[in-house]
Structure formats: C-alpha cells, structure tokens
Simulated scan of single mutants.
Amino acid sequence: MTSRQPTDFQSIPAIDIGPLFAADETARRAVAEELATAARDVGFFYVVNHGISEARQNALFEQTQRFFDLPYDDKMRYYIGKSDNHRGYVPAGEEAPDPTKADAKEAFDLSFELPADHPEVVAGTPMLGANVWPDLDGFADDVYAYYQDVFDVGRALMRGFEHALGLEYDALLGHVTEPPSQLRLIHYPFDPNATDAQGIGAHTDYECFTLLRPTAPGLEVMNGAGEWVDVPYRDDALVVNIGDMLEIWTNGAFVATSHRVRKVAEERYSFPLFFAADYHTEVAPLPELIAEGDTPRYEPLAAGDHLWAQTIQTFNYLKKRLAAGEIALPDGARGAGSLGQHARHKDEAG
C-alpha cells in the first residue's frame, strides 16, 4: 500500500458509525471503508450515531463547569505538577505546543485507571496509575463514565480500521488493553478581545487518534495544500482525527493532520479523548501495508516513550524537571511536532 497525502479538502466528512455496533457484517465493512477513505484523504471526520447518550454528555458538561467555576486556589489543589503520573489541573500557560505563544486555556487531565498495586504502577511506568479527582460530589463517577463510553467508541473505530486495512483481528486493537489514553476537560474562558487569538497552537496528536466533543466552534485543520479549514460545530457528532501512532502503523497511508483552535472569543469547553496504544507497544509500519519492493517510511516508535517524550517537551513543569535532571527524555525521543502535515509543510518551507 503506497502512502497518500491528504487532499486539498475544504470540509470534513460525516460518517454514521451505528453499524459498527450492530451484527450486519456487510454494513460494518461499508462503514469501515468510509472511515479509511476519510483517514487517507482528510485525516479528520465527524462520527454520528456513536451511542453516547445525551444524559451522559450533559453530566460531563455540568461537572466540568462546576470544577472550572471554582476559585483558582481551589483548582490548584489538584495541580498537575503535584502528580507523579501527569494527571490533574492544568492552569493557563502551563502547556505550550508552540513555545512562542501561551495557550489561552485551562484543563483537567485524567486517564485509564490502574490500581496502586498494578505491576506497571509499582514499576513507576510514566503516565500510568490512578486519577486525581476533585472533591466534588459525583465528579469522578460522571466523568469516568463518559471516559468509558468514549473509549468504547474508540475501540469500535480501531476495529473498523483493522477491517478496512485488511488486517487480522486484533492486529491493532490487541495493543489497546490498559493504555495511557488521556481524556482532557478543556475550558477556554470568555474573552471579548480574543479576535483571531490562539486557543491551542498548531499541532498533531501523539496517539493513534482523537475523539473530540466540543461545545462551540473554533477548531481548524490543515489540508494538503497547507491551508487552514474551519470545522463547523455539530452537537450530534464527535470529531475524530488521526494521530502520530496510526500514521506510523499505516506507513503514512493515514496521516496525522495538524489542527489548532482559533477565534475563541466565546466561552468554550472541549473534551478530547486521545486513544493510545499500550505503553510498551512498538509501533512500526505493518508489513501488510508496505507495497512489494518498498521500504518502511518510518522507524519503529515506542508508543509510551513517544507520548512521554512529547509531553515532557510540551508542559512547563516537566521542562523544569528535565532541566533539573529529575527526569530524562526516553532514548530516541523525537522533537516536539516532528510528525504530521504541519511538520511536513514546515520542512518544505525550510
């Protein structure tokens, strides 16, 4: 299979994924083909009929608003820099995908729950373990229930990608059992002076793909010509984009597409689930996806180490720990933003 670049698209497709959860094999395969076409040609798409109830989503919204409405000092009780596995509150300015600009947002980060006696937690594997939960009634239950629902949608999508790529059962999903798949609760405060202001800088996502539930417009994606294309808000859909790991697994057939948040004058919430592979997974171009006579376009990548390295290079508290010698970048760490369309266009311009 030869690699393809995204087209010069001007909009992103919407795909009804209901058949992925049903018994009709023909319908499932048809949806899988739609997913793969979108992943190759665009790298972004909406999914509708995803099965996450409106009640579940509303509970998530309400709990998130309750937390971000707390006084700053109360939120800082759960500051991510106090954690040992990168979970908790992220104040404005803490994260900088583009180091020349501070992101105008705050966030709360959580991930797949593992108990303290789990072997990976005992071993000190980065980014694994228990979540940090605010002392708010119902917060943990409502937020983690949404996490489990959207994680299940991610599993269905990964199965669909396996089918469309002609891979054996569990060729991809078999590497997703206890992953550092992070859910972020993101808040962009109202700012009447935020005309054309940056909310999150241009970047690709580090994991396999992302499932995003926003509450307002603001997202833009980069097409194959390097142009920024608006992603209109839909309250009935999740927005899915391909990330670094799936780009590598597919040898570039799917491309991690750069995106950013712009023009966020209105208050906005955003809920991305970054669907990752298990920490110790080696992600390399799959032999089945390399055309005869071709060579792999990517070197193997250690899934967890890549995620950890990119995180270290993005968060200020981790940059300080790195400079102080308290932590180290994993061997073979790639530079921040080294994959995806944004990196390709920067390389061409340079």
Rank of each mutant, 00 (worst) to 15 (best):
R4I: 13
S11Y: 03
I15W: 01
D16I: 03
A22G: 08
A27Q: 14
A30W: 01
L35Q: 02
L35Y: 00
A36S: 13
D41L: 06
V48W: 04
E54N: 11
A55R: 09
R56C: 15
Q63G: 07
R66M: 11
R66N: 12
P71W: 07
K75G: 08
G81D: 09
N85L: 03
K105G: 00
D109E: 13
G124M: 08
G124Y: 07
W133Q: 12
D135Q: 13
D142A: 15
D142C: 10
Y144S: 15
A145W: 03
G154E: 01
R159W: 00
R159E: 00
Y169W: 04
H175F: 05
H175C: 09
T177E: 11
S181N: 11
L183M: 13
A202Y: 00
E207P: 04
L212M: 09
D230N: 11
V231R: 01
Y233E: 07
G243L: 04
G243H: 06
N251M: 07
G252C: 09
R260D: 06
V261H: 02
K263P: 00
V264R: 00
A265Q: 15
L273F: 07
F274W: 10
H280A: 14
V283R: 02
A284Q: 12
E288W: 02
I290N: 10
A303N: 12
Q310A: 10
T311V: 08
Q313M: 09
Y317T: 09
K320Y: 08
P330D: 09
G332M: 06
G335A: 14
K346W: 09
